[in-house]
Amino acid sequence: MGSSLSLNNSLVSGFSPAVATWYGSPNGAGSGGACGFADDVANPPYNGLISAGNQNIFKHGEGCGTCYQVKCTENPACSGFPIVVTITDECPGTCNNEAFHFDMSGKAFGYLAKLGQADKLRNAGRINVQYQRVPCKYNMGITFKIDTGSNANYIAFAIEFVSGDGDVGSVELLPSNSKSSLSMQKSWGCTWKVGIPVGVKGPYSVRLTTIESRNTITANNVIPGNWSPGQYYRSEANFS
Rank of each mutant, 00 (worst) to 15 (best):
G2N: 11
L7P: 00
S10T: 08
S13M: 03
V19Y: 00
V19N: 12
A20I: 05
A20F: 03
Y23N: 07
Y23R: 08
S25H: 08
S31M: 07
S31Q: 14
G33W: 07
G36Y: 07
F37C: 06
P44L: 11
Y46M: 09
N47L: 13
A52W: 05
A52G: 15
N54K: 14
N54G: 14
Q55P: 03
E62N: 15
G65K: 14
C67A: 15
Y68I: 00
T73G: 15
N75K: 15
P76E: 14
A77K: 09
S79T: 11
G80Q: 06
F81S: 14
P82T: 11
P82G: 10
T86Y: 00
T86F: 09
I87F: 03
T88P: 05
C91D: 13
C95Q: 06
N96M: 03
N96I: 04
E98L: 02
A99L: 08
F100M: 08
F100W: 07
F100E: 12
G106Y: 06
G106M: 04
K107N: 05
F109V: 12
L112M: 12
G116T: 03
L121Y: 04
A124R: 09
V129E: 06
Q132C: 01
R133Y: 01
R133A: 01
N139V: 00
M140H: 01
G141R: 05
T143A: 15
A152H: 04
N153I: 00
Y154W: 13
A156D: 09
V162W: 08
V162G: 09
G164Y: 01
D167L: 10
G169P: 07
G169Y: 05
E172V: 12
S176N: 10
K179P: 01
M184P: 05
M184Q: 06
T191P: 00
V194T: 15
V194Q: 04
G195E: 14
I196D: 00
I196V: 09
P197F: 10
P197I: 13
K201Q: 07
G202E: 01
G202F: 02
S205G: 14
V206Q: 04
R207K: 15
T210M: 09
I211W: 04
N215M: 07
T216C: 09
T216Y: 07
T216K: 13
T218L: 09
N220P: 05
N221P: 03
P224Q: 03
P224F: 06
G225M: 00
N226P: 00
W227F: 15
Y233H: 11
Y233R: 10
S240N: 14
